[in-house]
Design a binder for these strands. Structure first.
Lengths: 180, 180
DNA sequence: CAAGACATGTAACTGGTTACATGATTCG
DNA sequence: CGAATCATGTAACCAGTTACATGTCTTG
């Protein structure tokens, strides 16, 4: 039930409609937690009936029913309680690792690895650009930016690690090629 | 439907019972793909009815019905076809990152980060020990060990990256503490 | 003979994905 | 007025988790 908490965090920053949340999950938050709008609406409805969030409905002249959600006191309480619990280790499930492990077709693995490497490099570049743009002086960040900076750092380290792994794999494949 | 492929890879190495597979997913394979026995039995049953695997049932004197599964030709075909498809990027969902992003209670974050760091360090140690024990000379591995070595390398890099991230987080938290 | 490993499953539930469906507002 | 974006949802399905249930074989 962690999407619930991601939504609580997001709403604590700023009240939002389901649509807004979906966009946030596309952008900043979505880089470590994705969620489709369908799922968000579903969870939001449940959270509302559980009293964690409350909606203010705007419908000027009876048109455009737009619901802006905000935390309730109970939601705020749940958020602080959750933030004190130890976070569970991420389950990692990697199709790529399974494929590597099988090691059937070295050519296919090489191609896949190169594609992944390019993807990591691309993201890394974007993250670094974003870091440069938004977090000039990380030693003196205002409180509300510390979290997102640290998360961005995590993203950067993750992509760098991904590249390093790809390079090791490609090096191994090359050395075998020259064997043959 | 990737558990299916993990099972195909595992059975290609060696035919097995559902129970055997569950243990493999606890050990070597399970470090990048976990699966409970319940799920394995369910998927195995589906795969059998789809003709990807076939079971040989042993029941001496009408007792102990034990099914040993092996790939069929179709299963082998599916495995090679899959190994040629580009592998999808792993969806990452991190409760910890969500919590970091929220950045409500620095003390709780520090404690959580230290716990995570210890967990990473512990795993890293075990992986390094395993590398030392099993892969003395990675330049000259027999074909069937290349994949598992590269996967282990991925695990090692992942844990190292995890530690580096935790250290950055703790450094930031310390520097803020000294501000106050 | 008891404990622990071996062995196979069912059922209910939770979380997430895909496909489908509808309508309003804004801007060129 | 048409296209893009804003906005909200339903339904069917798939994958994974948790709890429950049963029985055999091996070894001390």
């Amino acid at each position: 039930m962690a999407l619930e908490h991601a939504i609580l965090v997001s709403l604590a920053e700023q009240p939002a409609t389901g649509y807004d949340l979906a966009r946030r999950f596309d952008a900043s938050i979505g880089f470590f937690w994705q969620a489709s709008h369908q799922q968000i609406y579903r969870v939001l409805a449940r959270m509302e009936s559980n009293g964690l969030v409350a909606a203010r409905t705007e419908s000027r002249d009876g048109r455009l029913h737009k619901k802006t959600y905000d935390l309730t006191e109970e939601g705020r309480g749940e958020l602080t309680a959750w933030s004190r619990e130890p976070s569970p280790r991420e389950a990692l499930r990697s199709d790529f690792a399974v494929k590597l492990r099988g090691f059937t077709d070295p050519g296919a693995i090489a191609a896949d690895t190169r594609r992944r490497r390019a993807d990591h490099a691309d993201r890394l570049e974007r993250y670094l650009a974003s870091e440069k743009r938004h977090y000039r002086d990380p030693r003196n960040l205002p409180a509300h930016e510390r979290g997102s900076w640290l998360v961005l750092r995590g993203g950067i380290l993750t992509e760098q690690q991904g590249i390093a792994w790809c390079d090791e794999i490609l090096a191994q494949l090359d050395s075998q090629e020259s064997d043959a």
